[in-house]
Design a protein around this nucleic acid. Structure first.
Lengths: 138, 138
DNA sequence: TAGTGTATGCAATGGAAGTGCATTAATTTG
DNA sequence: CAAATTAATGCACTTCCATTGCATACACTA
């Protein structure tokens, strides 16, 4: 529990009850989660609060936003010391068409991308869709 | 004009007036366009018809859908003989934060991606965000 | 020409993201 | 410690886009 507080404080986020709970929830999830996922879990809480909690996490580089192409924004905790830098931190995301889960393949960093002259890259999003290992083995 | 018809017929799409016009519009655009873009251009036409026209184009592999992370679906014509295959056809998309335009970098195919064991890739989406060459030179 | 299938237009729905404002909690300051 | 300021939460509401249902119009075929 105290660890959770440390994580928040380290990123300059005040450890409110709600934030601790959401952080815990995120930590327990292996795959990326949507606002609705969080909402369904914390039935008593207000959607807006959860929305803003996630937003806060993203802004303080505790979590990152994932656009997996489903149209529903997903969130996942960043790795330790992540600053969402293109070269070092960004990894690819995998969306499984069967189980509908989106996961971070943190070991698979975004390959180096060469752009045409005068283009400046500030952010890269790489999503692979298909069938994940779990669904494939069934 | 006749060429437009040929394009449609080649992909088994009946060349209605609306479709010819939308196809023309797409041909003239260098960057990807949204449904709203088309709607704004063809003021007299109904949004649904345009929506379905684009949908038809995508289904018949005449155009591809682009999720550039803005939350607004974009469309762009496929290249000649494109079948949206991962290895050969998929290219990266660039979204400029300044001019807000999304463009196909068709010369930049998606780099080969190695996935963990038992993962099957069926589709890949690679979007780079930043500043495009036009905006960068101003 | 009648009939069938496809395309179009209108209306309405649904889902998600986001905002404004009032209320409550927490923190700072006199 | 109390007052005052700031931040977090909860509720209501708005906006925007994607999508669907159904009725009408058009086009092609027998």
């Amino acid at each position: 529990m105290i660890e959770l507080e440390q994580i928040l404080k380290k990123n300059n986020v005040k450890p409110t009850a709600m934030r601790l709970l959401v952080l815990q929830f995120l930590l327990n999830k292996k795959s990326a989660i949507s606002l609705t996922d969080v909402e369904d879990y914390f039935v008593k809480s207000d959607r807006t609060t959860l929305y803003r909690t996630l937003k806060t996490f993203v802004e303080s580089e505790l979590a990152h936003k994932i656009d997996d192409g489903t149209g529903i924004t997903k969130y996942a905790l960043c790795e330790e010391n992540c600053h969402c830098e293109i070269e070092t931190d960004l990894h690819l995301h995998f969306h499984c068409k069967l189980c509908n889960e989106t996961s971070c393949l943190t070991d698979h960093k975004i390959p180096n991308i060469s752009l045409p002259k005068n283009f400046i890259a500030e952010d890269v999003n790489l999503v692979v869709k298909g069938i994940c290992n779990k669904c494939n083995s069934n």
